[in-house]
Design a protein around this nucleic acid. Sequence first.
RNA 1: GGGGACGUAGCUCAGUUGGAUAGAGCGGCCGCCUCCUAAGCGGCAGGCCGGCAGUUCGAAUCUGCCCGUUCCCA
Length: 638
Amino acid sequence: MLHLLESRIVAAVSQHILIRYGLSTPVVLEQPRQSSFGEFALPTAFQLARELKKAPRAIAQELVDELPEIEGIRSFEVAGNGYINLRFDRAAFAAAVAAPPPAAPTGGKVLIEHTSINPNKAAHIGHLRNSILGDTFVRMLRAAGRQVNVQNYIDNTGVQVADVVVGFHFLEGKSLEDVRSLIETPRFDYLCWDLYAKVSQRYATDEALKAKRAETLHAIEAGHGVLAEMGALVADKIVNYHLDTMLRLGIVYDALPRESEILHLHFWAAAFELLKERKAIYLETEGKNKGCWVMPGSAFSDHREDEDSKVIVRSNGIVTYVGKDIAYQMWKFGLLGKDFYYRHLRTYADGHPLYVTSASPEGATPGISFSGNERVYNVIDSRQSYLQDVVQAGLRALGHPKEAENSIHFSYEMVALTPRTCGELGIELSDEDRARPYVEVSGRKGLGVKADDLIDKLIAAAQREVDSRNENEPEANRRQVAETIAIGALRYFMLKFTRPTVIAFDFQEALSFTGETGPYIQYAAVRAAKILAKAETSPALPADLGPILEDEELWQSLLAAFRTDTALALAINADEPAHMARYAFQLAQAYSNFYQKFPVLIETNPAKRDFLLWLTAAYRTQLVRTLDLLGIAVPAFM
RNA sequence: GGGGACGUAGCUCAGUUGGAUAGAGCGGCCGCCUCCUAAGCGGCAGGCCGGCAGUUCGAAUCUGCCCGUUCCCA
């Protein structure tokens, strides 16, 4: 609604400036710093001042005198040294906001790929940031009417899986049958976590073991033999663990594209031919990269010379990860001329299916494709930005500038640990590390906080709070509420930081449920629900709003309740879920203020009571909706 | 050596794309439950927006050069 009014103002003012001054200055609307200044401010006079060579204030006065009437706006006035402040027609705004128009679907297919954890060990907090960011952005885009598919890429044939197989087979002498029974034991993913760390450490001193690594990797890539079977068993089982962990956070997927199918369906071979044909890569004939197929450095970076070329195919004929990534990215846009087969893997509780890729039509569901997207978001941490640049350059060199433009590296900084938290976890730090602001999580060193452990710890902390406040509620309900609060706390914590900010993870901070946290926002929604449940009447807007809305505080409360669409548009435009999280907190703050100042149920003026109840319902709706965008549910009680 | 990100209150971070008196949470101090849930609300204290120069009517925001932290590529 607010959004609609904004575009109406922008259109009217731009039109006026074009006619009056013959200028097509972009009109910007701001929210005034002080609410007493009005609902919107136009800094347009400042922008015009330069071109018109007149004082901003004089231009502002001219505009105010001459601007036509705009539906929904009560007044314009000059303020400060040239601002134009706008005030709404309050009753009209309330009436319009009570009956909002439905959002229309827009745009083509969008693909978001997130999570993409190596299937060789349990997920950790760094992975949680990835998944929560990706999932939240999916929710935001869908709410804005976009058609979004969600993928979780599975590198089931990579070195990390190979390392765990090396551990089982060569270090511990386990047979295929041993592993087959081992994967059914509880917390197999934790067992792999430790084994992976152990193998990684061992490589440093054990050359013989390290030699087994390449052998194992080749066997897994080829896809047959005992080592390959063992790798498949491990990877499939760990993927299941990851899916379950993410499901605890309400995160689901549409498809799991796997590296094994990218290999077996020869995606790279098709891409290689195209890259050669379009001269995107060339065969190096001298220097250190002699015999390699390389992409010139100038193709992917303004600051690089051609000598800084990136090797795509090594001189021994082995393709690098970037090469395979280019092929895969081409598939995402439907530029490869190849597709996977898709096999049904599981059905989520809401009935929506999850597919995994397959190399043959046997057992596949016909008529499905996740290829051919218009826009692709890859949620990957910022350490990969160099490689993502190369992938993007690959598309450009192949003659697909539009697809390169629509390849978005949705990057974010890592989650590290504070030295204090390392201490709490019993991780020994060097003096050098202790002096650092944060310590990087490392799977190789087994250094990190496992996702499920963190979730369990959060639930336990929430459970203590819930139990102490709600003795009379049945235990099952209290458990349910504790889980909802824990997930709310975790998701909000991961979302409150903007993407380029390194999160120095600290248990004390993450376990806090007061202040700027998920539970604070949930609490606001619960309080509103309680009032609505206790009220005898159902909320309805009273006929005569005039006198009620003259109360400045009430008017500000009403305004604050209806900024969701504007906030969503801004957050999507900035590719920044943190903006949405921030808005959710501000909405909850606005409601908490309203709650404190205006006791609804004891209000004696009937019209005012109706209005307060109606506004409570409005806040409740907006809070639930905004929290849903963040993937946070509202508990039944708190 | 080259490139990216960051530097804002004691701590952790926002800052709507260059606008009015720089904000929030935590921590500290003071206050508010006879009244819809105190996981809440109000108040106070706390700032050379890393430094210097420049662009602009106007800079935390843009440009250049330094200093510091960090990631990546060699």
